[in-house]
């Protein structure tokens, strides 16, 4: 059951990418694309049990729609932050690597969290170890683990928690 839903999910993603690459030319391209997507999905889905960590709930879907907006906002802030630092004559930084703790349990949730942290203002995931992330912070304001966790990961965690657990 789990394996079937993984295969279907992978098939849907592959087919969507294929159709986007061929400009949604349904008449010519739908059939070969569907065949190849099905073959590839059937071969690779067993190795991707990470996909089954997605929690299919209405609240999860809603959060999944809101998450990109939150993420884009943080991304724009990150860029303005970097840009404003780079153009100053003397770059204002006090960098350091801090350890933070996440409450997420699923691997998929942690992957997305780590990648999101990398694209937000002044933070870069250097190493992960179970529930601890080591994060290079361009402007360390709180070296304490609790406080650093609150400042860096909480923004995304509350969404990812619902989506993946």
């Amino acid at each position: 059951m789990k394996r079937l839903s993984n295969t279907l999910l992978l098939f849907a993603i592959l087919l969507l990418v294929w159709l986007a690459l061929t400009d949604f030319n349904l008449a010519d391209r739908l059939l070969p694309g569907a065949v190849f997507s099905l073959v590839v999905a059937a071969i690779f889905a067993p190795g991707l049990d990470i996909l089954s960590e997605i929690r299919p709930s209405w609240r999860g879907i809603g959060y999944g729609l809101v998450y990109p907006i939150v993420f884009l906002r943080e991304l724009v802030l990150a860029n303005l932050d970097v840009a404003s630092r780079v153009v100053r004559p003397r770059i204002p930084i006090s960098p350091g690597i801090v350890k933070v703790k996440t409450s997420l349990r699923s691997r998929l949730g942690r992957i997305i969290l780590a990648n999101s942290i990398t694209l937000t203002p002044g933070t870069l995931t250097v190493e992960t170890e179970g529930e601890f992330f080591y994060i290079h912070w361009i402007d360390v304001t709180s070296p304490d683990i609790e406080e650093a966790s609150r400042e860096i990961v909480r923004t995304f965690e509350k969404y990812l928690e619902v989506m993946f657990g």
Partner: peptide, 14 residues
């Protein structure tokens, strides 16, 4: 590490 910060974020949105 600081170079990586600039190199990742600004170029992504850029």
């Amino acid at each position: 590490y600081n170079r990586m910060q600039a190199g990742t974020k600004a170029t992504t949105l850029g």
